[in-house]
Nucleic acid binder design. Structure first.
Lengths: 198, 198
DNA sequence: CTAGTTATTGATTGATCACTAACTACAGAT
DNA sequence: ATCTGTAGTTAGTGATCAATCAATAACTAG
């Protein structure tokens, strides 16, 4: 956190305060940013929308973050940390209550699902994958994957299984964001994995 | 094609010509649009960029398509058709030259990879998944998945295997768009599946 | 040759948006 | 009381962009 801040300072020469209160504000802005970016991505979201949701004026966003791509990248770091800790926790729980490897993988899958579905995190991560034309975002996304792979690999040892875990998650993201669980057609049932929303 | 055109007419009351020449132009614009949208998505791409790449003036885009979201949705239909035919072809080839089900799945996987990697199609599809806040885009994306699932299910009978095929493809998309094959760190190797670019 | 249609463009506009500048309010510290 | 720094605002600017319009060029049919 402090490291990134310092980097911003040297890069942009913008003076960003780092008091306790401003860091707290930064966090509320990041939460708002994740929700807004989740819907329309980096370019489709206005800083005004984010400010409004965070309950501050739009220009004040620029006192807290140097520019929009940096705000987006910081949002990626934010959910990256959140996801890593949540995942580590859930995976440890799952590992404790389950012994066979297949069951662990199933538990790992539901660990992701519980965290990500019905929140903005999922859609935001999809948006992040798409905003990698902006180099600062690409780096944040790579770092995010690095962290998640390290957490998951801690519990699922086979590379192949880890890869499948990520692939499953990505498919699930798409299925959820398209609302396929509510579509009663063969192709939708196939992609949903037979599960229908109650 | 004609159906969609009629829909546009009734929806927007814009008169869109449908002569041979204008349909050909439309296709040129769609190819350009896929390339441009692939990089910065629906909101990050300007109609001017697309027009420039297609070799026409920006206002003329609006004689061929009613508005930007419609152009994006038409682009989705365009790659949907392209992908479906290419995929059907490659899968038939693979099915002819291979007999065991596991080998078929491997062949199916490389069918997708060959088509999608190193072209703009992959990134464009990721962008399409993210632009579903726009209802017209969401419908086009759903129709695209319906079509691809139907094509793939023709050759891979198990729903679970089809799902895995899509999951694999999505992970591969991300790996390719982040250039992980060129990163020599454990997490990147894990996600890349051990493959390095030569 | 003429009348009508289609293809295509340059110029413009109204709105939006990222970002800046300049100000206010208030909290200690001296 | 005054200085100083921090939190936050209102007001403003320049640039950009989707979408429109009016006009022209290039066909096509009789």
């Amino acid at each position: 956190m402090q490291r990134r801040l310092a980097a911003c300072l040297t890069m942009t020469m913008t003076i960003l305060s780092s008091s306790a209160k401003s860091n707290q504000r930064r966090q509320t802005v990041l939460e708002a940013a994740v929700s807004c970016f989740a819907r329309k991505g980096l370019y489709g979201t206005t800083t005004h929308e984010i400010a409004e949701r965070a309950g501050i004026s739009q220009p004040y966003v620029y006192r807290l973050f140097p520019d929009k791509p940096s705000l987006f990248a910081s949002s990626v770091e934010f959910v990256s940390d959140l996801m890593a800790t949540t995942l580590a926790e859930k995976l440890s729980e799952a590992a404790a209550s389950v012994n066979s490897p297949e069951n662990l993988q199933a538990a790992a899958h539901s660990a992701y699902t519980d965290f990500v579905v019905e929140s903005d995190v999922m859609r935001f991560l999809m948006q992040a994958n798409c905003a990698t034309d902006e180099p600062i975002v690409a780096n944040a996304v790579r770092a995010c994957y690095a962290k998640q792979v390290m957490v998951v690999s801690e519990h699922i040892r086979s590379d192949e299984a880890v890869r499948q875990w990520f692939g499953d998650g990505m498919l699930e993201n798409v299925v959820a964001s398209l609302g396929l669980a509510d579509i009663n057609e063969p192709w939708a049932r196939t992609l949903s994995g037979g599960l229908t929303r109650s």
